[in-house]
Simulated scan of single mutants.
Amino acid sequence: MRILIAPDKFKGTLTGVEAAAAMSEGALRVYPDAVVTTLPVADGGEGTLEAAVAAGFEEHMNAVVGPIIKPVGAAWAIHQDTHVAVIETAQASGYLLSEPTVENALRAHSYGSGQLIAAALEAGATEIIIGLGGSAMTDAGSGALRALGLKLLDAHGNLVPLGGGSLLDVATINASGLDPRLAGTKIRMAVDVDNPLYGYNGAAHVFGPQKGADADAVEKLDAGLRHLASLVRAATGVDIDVPGAGAAGGFPSLFTAYANATIERGFDLVAEMVGLDAALNGADLVITGEGSMDEQSLSGKAPIGVADAAHARGLPVVVVAGRITVTAQELAAHGVVAAVSATDVAGSPEAALAEAAMHTARATSEALNGI
């Protein structure tokens, strides 16, 4: 028996690596002679870096400017053979690095994420995967590109302050000082949303309140994004208001105009990065899961992506999650033959959270025993 274990993180309780270890323990209780392979996955947001490191990428740490100026330590990774680097905006520009206040919602920026890109370029990266999610800013990626040489100038030729709240003051975009290595480096933006840059489904309106923006701040941020997009369109002819451009405070948008950047479905990108296809080809059974297997999961989250890829190969799939709110019939459509939650075996959500690894292992054993 060859078992592939490919979970996403159990947000707030277990990382993808920890969840995979717990599932492996539970699987080996039932099949002690099984050959178990663990391969954590992600949707392209938080957890992408961890999945890369688990897949053999070399982790590095850099001191960068956080979303509200204060220096932070941020991790990133590079594969020494392929020269592919992996960066998460949450590491350098994450919402956990700033208080969610109105002032910070307007001031927060992505400059530190640009510093990580610069570090990857310096290390010889020829392709950079950027996992978008968990961000503090709504600056359209302008801070990151400013760290790479882009200048946003006001009507007097002065640099405007960092942050989304200053975008309305931009009169000119000067790209003459951009790092020339950007042109020859493929930048792949991993997103798990399809929100546009601005408007009622855009970065400011949908995600701004989570970052501390009140109604007035949301309107100001949205107007700034709209204004910046019009300047870019006039200067380059590129429309940066496209599906997915609203991820991470609009981070991908400016990159599509000023770098060799594409916006891609996060799970597909991560699956390619960690070698999911090859791992599935060597498996007899697949176990996947996440913290909450719910209706949102069925819309293309990582575990369902794993299940669909396994199902296409005729492989049975087992789901283990912190909680499960979808039906067995809904999961069966994705090739799932058994599904058990840690909450079920623990008896309550509180108990499941208190001993997440133990109950995840128990849930895995129970699911496999039920097949």
Rank of each mutant, 00 (worst) to 15 (best):
M1T: 12
R2Q: 14
R2H: 14
R2Y: 11
R2D: 10
I3Y: 11
I5G: 06
A6E: 03
F10V: 01
F10D: 03
F10H: 04
K11L: 05
G12I: 07
L14V: 01
G16M: 00
G16V: 05
V17A: 15
V17G: 04
A19D: 09
G26C: 07
R29F: 08
P32M: 12
V35P: 01
V35Y: 15
V36N: 08
V36T: 08
T37N: 07
T38S: 10
L39A: 13
L49W: 01
E50H: 05
E50L: 06
A52R: 04
G66S: 05
P67N: 12
I68R: 07
G73A: 14
V84L: 06
A90P: 00
S93E: 05
Y95A: 12
E99S: 08
T101I: 07
V102R: 12
N104H: 15
R107P: 04
H109R: 09
G112H: 03
G114A: 05
L116T: 03
A118L: 10
A118W: 02
A119Y: 05
L121G: 04
A123K: 10
A123E: 03
G124F: 13
I128S: 08
I128D: 02
I129S: 04
I130D: 05
I130L: 14
G131P: 12
L132W: 12
S135R: 06
A136Q: 11
M137Y: 12
M137S: 15
G143E: 00
A147T: 12
A147E: 11
L148D: 06
K151L: 13
K151C: 12
L152A: 00
D154A: 01
H156K: 13
G157S: 12
L159V: 11
V160F: 06
V160R: 02
G165Y: 02
D169M: 02
V170R: 04
A171K: 03
T172Y: 05
T172E: 05
A175K: 00
L178E: 01
R181G: 06
M189Q: 10
V191G: 03
D194T: 14
P196R: 13
Y200V: 11
A204M: 06
F207C: 10
Q210R: 15
K211W: 09
A213R: 06
D214V: 00
K220R: 14
K220M: 13
A223L: 07
H227S: 09
S230Y: 03
V232N: 02
T236K: 09
D239K: 15
D241L: 08
G246Y: 00
G249Q: 04
G250S: 04
F251R: 06
A259G: 03
F267L: 10
G275L: 14
D277I: 07
D277T: 10
A279H: 11
G282Y: 13
L285V: 08
V286D: 07
M293C: 14
D294S: 11
Q296D: 10
Q296G: 08
G305C: 15
V306S: 02
V306Y: 07
D308K: 15
L315A: 00
A321M: 07
G322R: 01
G322L: 00
V326C: 05
A328T: 14
A328G: 15
V337C: 13
A338Q: 09
A339V: 05
T343A: 14
V345F: 01
A346L: 12
E350K: 12
L353T: 11
A354W: 14
E355S: 14
A363G: 12
A363P: 07
A363L: 10
A367G: 09
N369L: 15
G370Y: 13
